[in-house]
Write a protein that binds this DNA or RNA. Structure first.
Lengths: 255, 255
DNA sequence: AAGTAACTTCCACCATTCGGAAACATTCGA
DNA sequence: TCGAATGTTTCCGAATGGTGGAAGTTACTT
């Protein structure tokens, strides 16, 4: 994880770190590999893994290697359902009309996390894994979310999260960011222009009235996602955002 | 969770207990509700939740309620992919031919856990949530798995897990279970006849050659799932089991 | 069969966790 | 609108639960 509270429960953090490492592994992973990746002593890892195995979130195979356990499936599905699966048809509509990858992300602590994605059918396309956390100041969705907040709140978020600059287009100081946010507010949408990743452009709009700060985006390679594309994309994105908002309003009305 | 190691890391266990409670909650849950459900002091829960929030596995909403966080999505998807999503088309074939719910389960510690399911189109149908853990001795899939193991191994598993009898059809002692397993071995398939749940019958076969002990089943109400049904179902189940095994062999060959 | 590497268990120590009390924030009712 | 009640968050010293080096066990390789 990119960020963690210094006052968190250490053993819980370590357990989840191991889970993330196993998730990132090809399929199975050995205790020694985990020890190397996590830089923790073997018995510490072993004890945490034993706990995770007994709880069903990790499995130990007959060859003594470890893999994810079935207990994570239901939690993952419920989380997905709660956070974004119902947005998928709207995102699919965006992809159908624009031909590029559509994402939805929410403000998650001081970061933005992708919670739904419908990928473009192009071979060369934006692929961002659902569940991935990114900095708000370098992502289209992140900036669309920040533009909804007041400047003091923005300062707190980026102050805590930091402002790394992954590319030479990235914004690195809060004043420049606040200027960009002002532009986003007046223009109605946000642009990530090679800021998160070279060669990638992204347009994003906020989803109004959501329980968590939310934005949706469409993104792809510079060759296809240009200003001409934007002229078509923004109304479609905006309409999808409003449709998603209407959906959640209906869900809330039903429960 | 039904079972847990007594030498597990307590704080990790508690963190996951909270995650499970949030997963089971309707959508959002308050700190006080969690305290009541978990029977732990408020500050303990708060501290664990703060850790989980900072890691992204739990979200705190603006109304101070807690919900699952997006960090669980990717782990859940990877776990699902590793454990059972690739079996889904075969299970769907079973359902298409037989019209009843098909499940796949794996041995998970001393229990069996459902890792894939394709439900019947009937209104009245077997519904078992993916991720759910059940006792081996009372479930069709569990007994199909146990029948693959030697008697000493079976004794260890049920000795540790216990042998509760949820219905008056359930097997409650290990000798009767071993006799049933002998029958299963000679007959080639397993039957859960009102043993796990009244009114439900299930036929199951083991999937050969899997990294984890695995079985698939078809189940439904007594009125439809009878011996006549079994005569049709067993060859179809057996064929699906072999097709799944062939799939995993191909996956292993590719990596 | 022997040696090596990887994994698992043990247990004394102390760092981290725990939870009661206090402080803070929100909600509800008059 | 204000005060009381309820719910949530923070603090910090005690003690317990987590840690990790050492020893034991298992699996793999030659």
């Amino acid at each position: 994880m990119a960020e963690r509270a210094s006052t968190g429960v250490q053993s819980v953090e370590r357990a989840f770190e191991l889970l993330e490492l196993i998730t990132n592994a090809r399929y199975e992973v050995t205790l020694s590999e985990l020890a190397e990746l996590a830089d923790l002593p073997l018995p510490t890892i072993h004890r945490l893994l034993r706990t995770l195995v007994s709880l069903g979130y990790v499995r130990q195979l007959s060859n003594r290697r470890y893999g994810l356990g079935p207990g994570l499936i239901r939690m993952g599905e419920v989380a997905s359902r709660q956070l974004g699966a119902w947005a998928r048809p709207h995102l699919a509509g965006v992809v159908a009309q624009l031909g590029e990858t559509a994402n939805m992300a929410i403000l998650d602590g001081d970061m933005a996390t992708y919670v739904a994605q419908v990928p473009s059918a192009h071979s060369m396309r934006m692929f961002t894994e659902v569940g991935r956390r990114v900095h708000t100041h370098t992502s289209g969705v992140g900036k669309a979310i920040l533009a909804q907040l007041d400047d003091a709140h923005v300062r707190r978020i980026v102050g805590r999260a930091g402002m790394p600059t992954p590319t030479d287009h990235s914004i690195g100081d809060v004043d420049a960011l606040l200027e960009d946010l002002a532009r986003i507010r007046s223009r109605g949408y946000s642009i990530d222009d090679n800021e998160q990743e070279r060669g990638v452009r992204c347009y994003a709009v906020a989803v109004p009235g959501m329980p968590s700060q939310t934005a949706i985006s469409v993104s792809g390679p510079l060759t296809r996602v240009d200003e001409q594309f934007a002229a078509r994309a923004i109304p479609i994105l905006t309409e999808a955002a409003h449709a998603i908002a209407a959906d959640i309003e209906n869900v809330n009305r039903r429960s």
